[in-house]
């Protein structure tokens, strides 16, 4: 009889579980759960354009807003639109014509050249704002939808300006030329551009550097997502690189590279007039696509991946009156005055 007792104790020690673990496909963003979104899926994917770089890598998503190829995306993820292309549903590529770049809302309007008959999202400026706790969905760059909720209050996100992510020596560099880099933040614009400790920054765009305070002054006038040409000295040799600026708050919050977002954070995460906050697990390259409710009603476009639990979307009420005006102006340019 004694061995049976051992058995029960062993079993107790070996497994603390009742039902087996929930399989990945049955979790909130698992394949079986997402089957419930099938009615919205087709509609969402048709309204989404995929922007790829020259190497064919996903750069951002975009949302079709005009049947004649007009699309909008996150401006700071597409700083050089001429270097990106749209990958259409049949796999073919189309070049982009930039029409309007709006730093205030971090949006850019473009037209896919030669593309017609796309399904434009029927945004309206007076749509009812989604409620706290309401389910929402959005496409990711992998062509699948994600499921989540409106997770916090809709609000303004103040901006703290741009940063490159270097700590500098306050003392002038030897010879009085340039500013020495003491430390480079992990996951920062400077790190991505290849800058290292000990480099001596010589110039930012056309401004020659002689004091460390100049760097933050110059950068603070710029916007996250903009590109700055940097000249620097390493091992006695002058070199150059291009740095894509990020939000100061993003750089400061992730100085040690503590990115628990799995997949990174957008370059620009702040300075928005009004945002919807949701918990869809998206990455920076998934920004620019539409945010929808579960009946397929468009709510806005995804504008910033902020941290492990946060994505911001711009509500249609904020951008649609503007974008609609830009499209109209582009479709109907003012006629030349008749010659007298």
């Amino acid at each position: 009889m004694r061995p049976a007792l051992c058995l029960i104790l062993l079993a107790a020690g070996a497994s603390a579980e009742m039902r087996p673990s929930l399989q990945p496909e049955d979790r909130k963003n698992g394949s079986r759960t997402l089957l419930a979104l099938d009615p919205v899926h087709r509609q969402a994917i048709k309204a989404t354009a995929r922007l790829v770089d020259t190497g064919g890598r996903a750069a951002a998503l975009a949302t079709w807003v005009g049947e004649d190829g007009y699309l909008i995306t996150k401006a700071s993820e597409a700083p050089e639109l001429e270097k990106l292309q749209v990958r259409l549903a049949d796999g073919s590529l189309a070049a982009l014509r930039e029409i309007r770049r709006d730093t205030r809302h971090d949006l850019v309007l473009a037209q896919a050249i030669g593309v017609t008959g796309v399904t434009a999202i029927p945004f309206t400026a007076d749509a009812k704002a989604p409620a706290f706790g309401q389910w929402i969905t959005a496409p990711a760059a992998d062509g699948q939808l994600r499921l989540g909720v409106i997770s916090a209050s809709s609000r303004q996100i103040p901006g703290l300006g741009a940063a490159i992510g270097v700590r500098m020596d306050e003392k002038p560099a030897p010879g009085g030329k340039g500013v020495r880099v003491l430390a480079v933040a992990e996951d920062s614009p400077a790190r991505a551009a290849g800058l290292r400790d000990g480099d001596i920054l010589l110039s930012l765009d056309d401004d020659t550097l002689s004091q460390f305070s100049q760097v933050s002054q110059l950068i603070s006038k710029r916007q996250p997502g903009e590109i700055v040409a940097v000249k620097y000295l390493r091992d006695g040799r002058e070199r150059a690189c291009k740095v894509r600026l990020a939000s100061r708050s993003k750089v400061l919050n992730n100085w040690e590279g503590e990115d628990f977002a799995n997949g990174g954070i957008s370059l620009r995460t702040d300075s928005f007039e009004k945002i919807l906050q949701h918990d869809l697990p998206l990455g920076p390259a998934d920004m620019g696509g539409p945010l929808l409710d579960l009946s397929g009603r468009p709510l806005g476009i995804n504008i910033a991946r902020v941290d492990r639990i946060t994505t911001f979307a711009l509500p249609a009420a904020v951008f649609w009156p503007l974008v609609k005006g830009w499209i109209e102006a582009d479709r109907h340019p003012p006629k030349a005055l008749p010659a007298r």
Partner: peptide, 18 residues
């Protein structure tokens, strides 16, 4: 304060003794 409490909705994956 402007953001308030943050909500996440999901499913239980696993239960152990504690």
């Amino acid at each position: 304060k402007a953001r308030g409490v943050v909500l996440r909705v999901g499913r239980i994956i696993r239960q152990t003794a504690n």
